[in-house]
Amino acid sequence: MWRYYIKICRKLHYFVIRAAPRLRAILVRSILGVNATAIGEKTKFRGLEFIHLGHNFRIGDFCWIEAITEYADQHYSPKLSIGNDVCVSDLTHISCLEYIEIGDGCLLGSKIYIGDHSHGPTHNLNSDDLSTYPSRRPLANPSAIHIGAGCWLGDGVVILGGTRLAAGCIVGANSVVRLICDRPAVVAGVPATIIRYLD
């Protein structure tokens, strides 16, 4: 008898685990209008009016997608565009101050950071800049990011402002990317370089 109950409990647990992201997506879509088919646990969106999500968007657990409209008494007009059929894994942070575009069909691994700005200037620093904590510095150095359709970003990738990746690029795990790549290529390293072209 106990085996029967344990079997039912396991099936019910499996169903809840599998259904939860879809149920969250339905709830969020009906309340906030977020166009997603699966939303992971503890995932948050900020600045939704400045974020465009394509159809069949799927996102994992503990992610943070933000379009920054205000920071330290400064106001911004960001544009974050994510295409159709984009899949984002767990623990990913996308932070947009100016412009970030992620094309259709991209696959983003886990623990990825994509940000088009920095906390304070990174060139010509003076003693005042260094004596101010980074969290209190104004956001600076905005530079657009374009990630073409069908790109695959491995786990732990960091994409910095000014990056442009052609459709079909593959970025190796744990790479730090700030480059322009106008042809499909394998990109990897710290800092990332073009390893080989795919076309």
Rank of each mutant, 00 (worst) to 15 (best):
M1H: 12
Y4E: 06
K7G: 09
L12A: 14
H13Y: 01
F15A: 04
V16R: 01
I17D: 06
I17H: 03
R18F: 07
A19C: 12
A19W: 04
A19S: 10
A20C: 02
P21Y: 03
R24F: 07
R29L: 09
S30V: 15
I31R: 10
I31G: 05
L32Y: 09
G33L: 01
G33I: 06
V34C: 00
T37W: 07
A38T: 06
A38F: 05
I39G: 03
T43K: 05
K44F: 08
F45T: 01
F45C: 00
F45P: 01
G47W: 00
L48Q: 08
E49N: 10
I51S: 06
L53E: 03
H55V: 13
C63W: 06
I65T: 01
E66N: 12
A67M: 04
Y71G: 06
A72Q: 12
Q74N: 09
Y76E: 01
K79L: 07
K79E: 06
G83C: 00
N84H: 09
D85T: 02
V86L: 04
C87S: 14
V88G: 12
S89L: 12
L97K: 01
Y99H: 13
I100H: 03
G103V: 09
G103T: 13
G103Y: 08
D104Y: 01
G105M: 03
C106H: 13
L107I: 11
L108F: 04
G109A: 02
G109K: 05
I114E: 15
S118A: 14
N126E: 02
D129F: 14
S131N: 15
T132A: 08
R136F: 13
R137K: 12
S143P: 04
G148Q: 01
G150P: 05
W152G: 11
G156N: 07
G162W: 02
G162F: 01
R164G: 13
V177Y: 03
L179C: 07
R183M: 15
A188N: 13
G189M: 08
G189T: 04
A192K: 13
I195S: 06
R196W: 09
R196K: 06
R196S: 14
L198D: 07
